[in-house]
């Protein structure tokens, strides 16, 4: 019988389809793992229309099946709603290193030069979870995780 900790470890190896430096566990979309007659994974969506949601479900299924988990069920759980507070603190550094400013309320810091002298260009960026910004010191454009 596979342990709950093992399942969590496997899920922590599944990358987010749109921001592959984050795992699904980093992102905070795995709400629970229950092991009984079947393995139940509770998954919450980030944005309700995020196209990655179905890919996430597929990736979880593939990962666990590849590791021999046969009786598997994914259960959507929308409450309490996901927010950027569910993203693990340690993952903020991964985002920054990848070039995406982590979610903060207030001014986004430039992920390249750490300047606070930045401006938002658009409230929506390349994916539903990001807004678009520009650093006025190093003049580079960058995406920031929207603070929700």
């Amino acid at each position: 019988m596979v342990s709950e900790a093992q399942i969590w470890a496997w899920l922590d190896e599944v990358p987010d389809p749109e921001i592959p430096v984050l795992s699904l566990v980093d992102l905070g979309v795995i709400r629970g793992v229950e092991i009984g007659e079947e393995v139940v994974i509770k998954v919450t969506p980030t944005y309700s229309g995020c196209p990655a949601t179905s890919v996430i479900n597929l990736d979880i299924t593939e990962k666990l099946r590849a590791n021999g988990v046969k009786n598997l069920r994914l259960e959507p759980q929308i409450y309490p709603p996901w927010s950027t507070d569910w993203i693990k603190r340690e993952a903020h550094e991964k985002l920054r290193a990848y070039g995406i400013a982590p979610p903060v309320s207030g001014t986004a810091l430039c992920p390249r030069c750490a300047s606070a002298n930045t401006e938002m260009l658009s409230k929506f960026g390349s994916t539903p979870c990001k807004s678009h910004h520009r650093c006025k010191d190093c003049l580079e454009p960058f995406d920031a995780f929207k603070c929700l």
Partner: peptide, 20 residues
């Protein structure tokens, strides 16, 4: 372009809410 992206994203949110 920014407005195009913004509206498409808003639309996506609304359709996602519709599914629920």
């Amino acid at each position: 372009l920014e407005e195009d992206i913004a509206l498409a994203n808003i639309s996506l949110d609304l359709i996602g809410q519709t599914r629920l």
